[in-house]
Design a protein around this nucleic acid. Sequence first.
DNA 1: CGATTCATGTGCATTATTTCACAATATTAG
DNA 2: CTAATATTGTGAAATAATGCACATGAATCG
Lengths: 217, 217
Amino acid sequence: MTKESKIPNPTIERLAFYSRPLEALLKGGPPVISSEKLAGLCGVNPAQVRKDLAYFGEFGVRGVGYEIRDLLKEIKGILATDREWTLCIVGMGNLGISLVENENFKKRGYLFVAAFDSDTRKIGRQLPCGLTIEPERKIRELVRELGIEIGVITTPSRAAQRVTEILSDAGVKAILNFAPIQVRTPESCIVENVDFSVKLENLVYHLERLYKGKKNG
Amino acid sequence: MTKESKIPNPTIERLAFYSRPLEALLKGGPPVISSEKLAGLCGVNPAQVRKDLAYFGEFGVRGVGYEIRDLLKEIKGILATDREWTLCIVGMGNLGISLVENENFKKRGYLFVAAFDSDTRKIGRQLPCGLTIEPERKIRELVRELGIEIGVITTPSRAAQRVTEILSDAGVKAILNFAPIQVRTPESCIVENVDFSVKLENLVYHLERLYKGKKNG
DNA sequence: CGATTCATGTGCATTATTTCACAATATTAG
DNA sequence: CTAATATTGTGAAATAATGCACATGAATCG
């Protein structure tokens, strides 16, 4: 193994980032890419690209560049996106539906195998993707039965912590939380929070500075 | 003005983050909170909270803490979320619909005043929130007429760059892009990208390390 | 086959961010 | 009024992340 002992977190995020243009480049164009080109496509520094990749091995050829096909394979191996993952989702409002129906997820191997809601009017409804909405009390049973590894939360904030506990109790190993609240998990379960409004707040902060002619970034 | 010259970007993101529990604390409970308590609720270091706030002024009282009501007001002033912002959205698939119908946005003053799509079958359809889906060719006209400041992109990847250009040409000052591609904007228009899959890829990277018993990450 | 060009991998300097630790100030108790 | 306690604001240390600059090895040209 290479020097995988102290890998910056931003590096992991960028790896995912790099893979996007690489996928596009697979279809046509030259089979090799330089760190400079790839960096340009992702809006980062070329040295950054090289350093990020070098944490995991020597994937390039000096004087030449990186073989796109191989590089993508390596990145997918590193990120563990070269296999399929089974997910479930809790909270079948508009956002929940948009996620289970999302083609990008399916394409990348993230398979939703169960959908839950607490609203009795929704339970039993069949979704276009083929899933049937199940009641929340079936979470434990289905997580075990279907070997679900990741839980996605798209409930209102007030339900998010409760659902987190049900999911982690049931044996889910990771949670992606879209409710605008920081949920707590036991050691055995890792969590990522996604909060759209935070991104908007970031934008409007910077917008406001622009309007006022301040120069901070 | 205080030392607003060199504010770390993570600070801005955390300010938004801090405001979440503060809003909840407004309704009941003591009127004052310490940096330690707030830090606990947000999972950060107390010194971090104090330093973040100190960039913008002295909002606390030594030996006492921060008046929740005042602090929230200050944060909202800083982030410019104490006013309303007018947004439009392009790409009315499931995700687009879930965003315009989202109550959190409305509650926080982000008002969607126009929705666009290129699919003729969708144009003219009325949404539960009251908006009617307009054709993309009306973007320029409506951005001007309605004074739209922020554009949200929920189209497929292949359309995202084109739509970005239409929006920034039309005079939109900021773009929130949900398509999994890095869009480029002219200087006059700032952009934030949100890519759900990146978060998932982060999770599975760490999951895989756990499974394999490695200790990085 | 030597010279030139290209582009990687990486040590090191630089820059950015976080955390510590403590003086300063308010409150409470005696 | 003094001592004890709580908690902020902040300089300085520690940690993390980025970017430069160059030695290194591959490819190409004459």
